[in-house]
């Protein structure tokens, strides 16, 4: 077990290096002189400052190590504006919690929708309930999340006025308003995800319900709900958990657009604004943060997976 975790940590470190390196390279993939691209209207003095900040004159590898050194210490560079610019870190530290909240809510919402429906569809496999749920799942997969977001904004926000259509409320300010402000964005992100999870759980659960140990549980007179929840759910949830982890990547991608639509001040909106203002140093930092987050999430999922399946746990 310990050796296994050790091996995984080494892998994690290697992947993090690769991810940060490619994020770092981003700025060098820009056509022409990065300094001119980032500060098209600024003064030469500003551009010189930028070159000095980034160390553009040094060899690539030493540029990377320098950048990485700053990155791990939380120095993400700064914005370059006509009249000074704030550190990227300041913006990111405000944006990150918002994005994390959005991701967590979306993931939880997706699972909360998918798990009961997946169990129900599997238990009633082949009946109209199952067909109804499957049709619903395919329909929600076919709707792009931003379209769903716009539809929800129009009906639930503008017409029924149940939810605010844009903006963000801090949890500390008002928990109810906070959840209200996050519900539509989270739901827009979650629905397609829920459909994927439901289908996955359904098929794994159908396979589990064919197992001898389920028959054994039935032959012992255990109630159906107990068999479904206590005996069948866990062995059916390994691929669900894995995909839920991997899907954080999909969710992150979706969140950028959703944050922009709902003007939620998260990392997505920050990247969105930085790209339109050509603040590539900020983009670079945001991409690296997101990339590292993604890798770390998958690492944690991998560990959880090990903890969930005793066969894997003891094989180590």
């Amino acid at each position: 077990m310990g050796a296994l975790i050790g091996k995984k940590v080494v892998q994690l470190a290697a992947v993090l290096l690769v991810v940060t390196f490619f994020s770092f390279l981003l700025i060098h993939l820009l056509p022409g002189d990065p300094a001119a691209t980032i500060i098209p209207l600024g003064t030469d003095a500003q551009r010189t400052q930028l070159r000095k900040d980034v160390g553009l004159d040094k060899p690539l590898v030493s540029q990377y190590t320098r950048w990485l050194g700053k990155f791990v210490r939380g120095d993400f560079g700064r914005y370059y504006r006509q009249f000074g610019g704030e550190p990227v870190r300041k913006r990111l530290s405000q944006a990150l919690p918002v994005s994390l909240q959005l991701l967590v809510y979306a993931e939880v919402l997706a699972l909360v929708i998918a798990i009961p429906l997946g169990i129900l569809a599997a238990y009633r496999a082949g009946t109209w309930v199952d067909r109804f749920l499957s049709t619903g799942a395919f329909a929600s997969l076919a709707i792009p999340d931003f379209v769903l977001a716009l539809v929800l904004i129009f009906y639930l926000g503008v017409k029924l006025k149940w939810f605010p259509v844009l903006g963000y409320v801090h949890f500390g300010q008002s928990p109810t308003e906070h959840f209200k402000s996050m519900f539509l964005p989270a739901f827009s992100l979650a629905l397609a995800q829920a459909a994927v999870y439901m289908r996955l759980l359904r098929s794994d659960m159908i396979a589990t319900l064919q197992e001898d140990y389920i028959l054994m549980a039935r032959s012992q007179g255990l109630p159906t709900w107990r068999i479904l929840l206590r005996h069948a759910l866990r062995p059916s949830s390994f691929s669900l958990l894995t995909v839920a982890g991997i899907s954080v990547g999909t969710l992150i991608g979706g969140a950028i657009v959703i944050e922009a639509i709902f003007t939620l001040p998260g990392v997505g909106l920050t990247i969105f604004q930085a790209i339109s203002e050509r603040q590539y140093i900020a983009v670079q930092a945001c991409v690296a943060v997101i990339g590292c987050g993604y890798v770390v999430v998958n690492f944690v999922v991998d560990l959880l997976y090990t903890a969930l399946d005793p066969r894997v746990r003891h094989a180590a």
Partner: peptide, 21 residues
């Protein structure tokens, strides 16, 4: 009746026991 009055044991104890319990 099941388990309480009449019980069953199955052929393959590997597949008839829940692997994650």
């Amino acid at each position: 009746v099941r388990g309480r009055q009449i019980s069953m044991i199955f052929q393959d104890p590997m597949t008839a026991l829940n692997p994650v319990m």
